[in-house]
């Protein structure tokens, strides 16, 4: 494994497309994930970004941190904007108005911009078969507006709109499984990734870039600010999410599921939950319930991977 990783490391381009000086919080794994992804996507990339953390930390007029063409239109429509760009590039190349070369369009949004308000536009774009990659940077709540819950917030988590209280456990619903929803569109490539596993992330971006059709990458992006953890533990918590089975790393290539990194035997979810301020209020029986769910989900994923 080490050697394979090293090969990838020497393979991956050194180019940077995120300029320094952005305003992301200390320990933000979201900008880290995006920086890694852009290295692989490379220079010939056009990015459509939804409103959210990454947009707001990068582009106060008249400055920018993006060294590739970048557009922000609104919150819920990154996939639709990307559809328009992809179509425009295609027709302009067909009409020989611009040079024919392999330009890749990506749409980037947070978990709210993907699994809540942007779901319809995303589903439409995936169904239409545009050749583009959609990246969901999932930090499990509306962090940009002050840590409000989204449908991607995990069960039990404290957010400012899912506060625990006498009559509330915190987030009372289970995390929406966006990667599976994307996979249900039967697109060529779907994957989950986490910047705590950079080589896994690199190889998935590479695949997403190369398939002929839509691809979807769901990246768990640890948010120290919203998760109430020390900034220097962002990478560690990403690893814990994977090793406990809370966030499995897998890919769905032509509708075939494959776990790309097996953390078995899974560590107890307690290890992941305990240090995070957002789960501090959980009782043993709550954690037990979460453990049951996570174990069942892991088993289900293994079953899906066993299907030929």
């Amino acid at each position: 494994m080490r050697l394979k990783g090293l090969e990838l490391y020497t393979d991956h381009p050194e180019a940077e497309f995120v300029a320094s000086g952005h305003r992301a919080c200390q320990g933000c794994a979201e900008i880290l994930a995006l920086r890694m992804a852009l290295k692989v996507f490379g220079k010939d990339t056009i990015m459509a970004m939804a409103t959210g953390c990454m947009e707001i930390i990068s582009t106060p007029l008249p400055t920018t941190n993006w060294e590739i063409p970048w557009i922000h239109v609104a919150f819920e429509n990154a996939a639709a904007v990307a559809s328009g760009i992809e179509s425009a590039i295609r027709i302009l190349q067909e009409k020989k108005k611009i040079e024919r070369k392999d330009i890749h369009v990506i749409a980037v949004a947070g978990d709210g911009g993907t699994s809540d308000i942007g779901m319809q536009a995303l589903s439409g774009a995936l169904e239409r078969g545009h050749k583009f990659t959609y990246i969901c940077l999932d930090n499990e709540a509306y962090m940009n507006t002050g840590i409000q819950r989204s449908s991607s917030t995990p069960y039990g988590a404290m957010t400012t709109t899912s506060p625990p209280g006498k009559k509330s456990i915190g987030q009372s619903t289970w995390k929406k499984d966006m990667a599976k929803i994307a996979a249900a569109h039967n697109i060529p490539y779907v994957a989950t990734a986490c910047p705590s596993y950079p080589f896994d992330l690199f190889s998935k971006i590479k695949k997403a870039r190369s398939v002929n059709g839509p691809s979807y990458i769901h990246i768990l992006s640890v948010c120290p600010t919203g998760w109430r953890i020390p900034a220097d533990l962002a990478i560690e918590y990403g690893k814990l999410a994977v090793r406990t089975g809370v966030f499995p790393l897998y890919e769905v290539e032509d509708s075939r599921y494959k776990i790309t990194y097996s953390p078995e035997p899974l560590r107890p979810v307690q290890d992941y939950l305990k240090g995070q301020g957002r789960f501090r209020h959980l009782k043993d029986e709550d954690i037990e319930l979460i453990q049951k769910r996570i174990t069942a989900q892991w088993e289900e994923l293994k079953y899906l991977c066993s299907l030929k």
Binding site: V73, N77, A82, G84, L92, A121, G124
Partner: peptide, 19 residues
């Protein structure tokens, strides 16, 4: 597109890309 919201959004993307 799957809605008028996406119609205008896709138009924004296409127009910004020069079409």
């Amino acid at each position: 597109v799957e809605s008028e919201h996406s119609a205008m959004s896709a138009c924004c993307g296409a127009s910004a890309a020069g079409a």
